[in-house]
Design a protein around this nucleic acid. Structure first.
Lengths: 237, 237
DNA sequence: CGATATCTTGATAAGCATCAATGTGAGTGG
DNA sequence: CCACTCACATTGATGCTTATCAAGATATCG
């Protein structure tokens, strides 16, 4: 394994004045009191695996992770992609219910569960912030259920592209960096890599997007993409 | 509408000694301090609708609810069925992200959000319990994503039957009461009513289950049903 | 620059949806 | 008490979307 303990006191952000980001708080933690260690993972490395016992909670500082569950025959469902600011590791009964792997190089803070729970009890407002974050996560999960249960392949891909565009806080919101492979996207959207590829090609042909590189997508017609993602029928689809 | 304010002080359960049930706490609340009112809904009635503003949090006391999201053309995804002990109404930005409807007759406690948040801050350990409940909900959501994204129709139906059987705390865990219609089941599993019906028939023919009534299902071979639900290939399927 | 993983494109097939008809049970009123 | 009605469930025939199998193109990396 490649785990490197990098530091023992990383940030010093005032817990009482933390903003709530889209999905989970940004920069919630890295609190000296609670930080057990900081660590890095190279692309493809596993942070923890489904079924393992754990007593750690992590915050993503840099990079992107995939969370997934497997069926015995290898079928994979990626339940989410986590970027900076997201927390992970709240494991019911102390057993991880999904595997967490690095997609890009990832930097994380690790907290001992006990220390984390002390923060919850002792820092006023902290628990409420976590609950707000959790309700955002639940909303995202419900959106994903709607996508997986009821949307067509085109609607799924359109939804995914807009999600990536929105969580990317760059100035140019129409140039989306897609660090994950087609296989990751497929396993997140409940499709195959072939269907993802074909759907992207179709969106390119209709000039809703451009694909200068496989990992870079430009949004050319956001309005129509949003109509597609919302499930409104668009002429030609 | 049929909403009836029934009482203003329902239970008196000690918040510090509450068990954590499967999914969400059982009997967490009905705390006199925070109870705004108790109410009932008849089958088919709406508790609240997606997109509505809200400042209430509810606890299910009796009966079963369905939570769902709709696409503009009417496609529906039921994100969950809620029974006694579950909380709902944690709405990010004060806007409901799903519709909640009664399946059976339902009794609920309603709390003002502000009063609820006071409890979080003032009652020691309460916030941690809520977070534990939230992480259970998230696990359920991730299981459902795996189901919707990667399981076959048979695997989905088997998973659903076992879920219903497990959350039913009766002595006879092999007699499952299914209060929802085939349409509800289909919209929860990302299938059509016809496929649900055909799949149940197939399971009946193979003597894994019995169907004395449409709303009553007996589990005859739990082991094989569990193998199916887990995605292990079973001879004949 | 060659090796290898990833992506794209094409042909065919399978699983589930759709369309259609029939069956069943609960509630209602004669 | 029984026929009628209506919603719900089941069963059947066919079709479509997406998966699977297969080949070739492109990108990445040592």
């Amino acid at each position: 394994m490649y785990v490197q303990a990098v530091s023992n006191a990383v940030g010093k952000i005032d817990l009482a004045s933390l903003p709530v980001g889209p999905g989970l708080e940004r920069q919630v933690l890295c609190h000296p009191m609670a930080v057990s260690s900081s660590l890095k993972k190279a692309p493809g490395e596993t942070l923890f695996a489904e079924g393992e016992k754990t007593d750690s909670i992590y915050e993503v500082v840099h990079g992107m992770l995939r969370l997934y569950k497997l069926l015995p025959d290898g079928r994979r469902q990626i339940t989410g992609f986590l970027s900076a600011g997201h927390l992970l590791g709240f494991a019911p009964e102390g057993v991880n219910v999904y595997t967490a792997e690095a997609i890009t190089e990832v930097t994380l803070c690790r907290y001992k569960r006990a220390a984390f729970e002390r923060l919850i009890d002792e820092v006023p407002g902290f628990a409420r912030r976590l609950l707000t974050a959790a309700s955002h996560e639940l909303r995202a999960a419900q959106d994903q259920m709607l996508l997986l249960g009821r949307k067509t392949a085109t609607e799924r891909v359109a939804s995914f592209l807009l999600l990536m565009a929105n969580q990317q806080e760059s100035d140019d919101t129409d140039e989306v960096d897609v660090p994950m492979t087609r296989s990751d996207i497929a396993d997140h959207l409940g499709l195959t890599i072939e269907t993802v590829s074909r759907t992207l090609t179709k969106l390119k042909q209709d000039e809703l997007i451009a694909l200068p590189m496989p990992t870079r997508i430009e949004i050319l017609d956001r309005d129509q993409l949003e109509e597609l993602a919302a499930g409104e029928s668009v002429a030609g689809f």
